[in-house]
């Protein structure tokens, strides 16, 4: 799990560290095997009781794996090229997503728009709510204790850690996804993108821009 090792600065060798200030708890190899054993045992019991079928679990995994940031990027690109669509997206994200064949599983999608004077940032302080049906699974840092704790209190410092300095004169809006709504940031269309097609534009839109920890850079 060398990928996991640089998840945090601590050099203890076990995912179940006892450091109360752990910013992100990750499993080591033994922890991952234990997790696999435990979930296999759970699945065995549920299958024995006829509550789920093994094939259902496999299909459900495929269903959960299929959404990704490409879906959110399509909404953003359409909003950039079609101002009427942009207005519909801001008014009712779920219905506007459905227009493009993108299904939003959550109760409602609230799309918040960045402009020259406003920067939006999405977090979830209580757990890890995230618009999974249009962005896929949240990144590890989004579910970290550090991001959950700090985004609501010092968003500008958090954004600087992501390399983004929001000008003092611009306002920052933080959206804590604490209940039934889910949030998507509509980034600003970058300078230099005027001649680009909708598909090309979608290619510029990253997951991080739609969470609000990044912006779409100018196109050269």
């Amino acid at each position: 799990m060398s990928d996991h090792d640089h998840a945090h600065d601590h050099d203890h060798d076990h995912g179940h560290g006892h450091d109360a200030h752990e910013p992100l708890v990750v499993e080591d190899d033994a922890g991952n095997i234990e997790g696999q054993i435990l979930v296999d045992a759970l699945q065995t019991l549920l299958v024995e009781r006829g509550l789920v079928f093994p094939g259902e679990v496999r299909r459900e995994i495929e269903r959960l794996e299929s959404p990704g940031a490409h879906l959110g990027a399509r909404l953003v690109a359409r909003a950039w090229v079609d101002d009427d669509y942009r207005r519909r997206l801001l008014a009712d994200g779920k219905s506007a997503a459905a227009e493009l064949g993108v299904g939003v599983g959550e109760a409602q999608l609230i799309v918040v728009e960045n402009d020259a004077t406003t920067h939006n940032l999405v977090c979830c302080t209580l757990c890890s709510c995230y618009p999974r049906s249009i962005l896929g699974q949240p990144p590890a840092w989004y579910i970290s204790k550090a991001y959950r704790s700090r985004a609501a209190r010092e968003p500008r410092a958090v954004l600087e850690e992501f390399g983004l300095k929001v000008p003092d004169e611009a306002r920052v809006l933080v959206h804590d996804s604490n209940a039934d709504m889910r949030y998507l940031v509509l980034p600003q269309r970058p300078a230099g993108s005027e001649a680009m097609s909708e598909d090309q534009l979608a290619g510029l839109v990253t997951r991080d821009c739609m969470i609000g920890v990044s912006v779409v850079g100018p196109v050269s």
Partner: peptide, 21 residues
Amino acid sequence: AGPIPIVELPWLHWEKQVEAI
């Protein structure tokens, strides 16, 4: 809390199984 651990981790099979169930 400390600095944000800006890392990307793979979504492992057992973790997908947890979410699927």
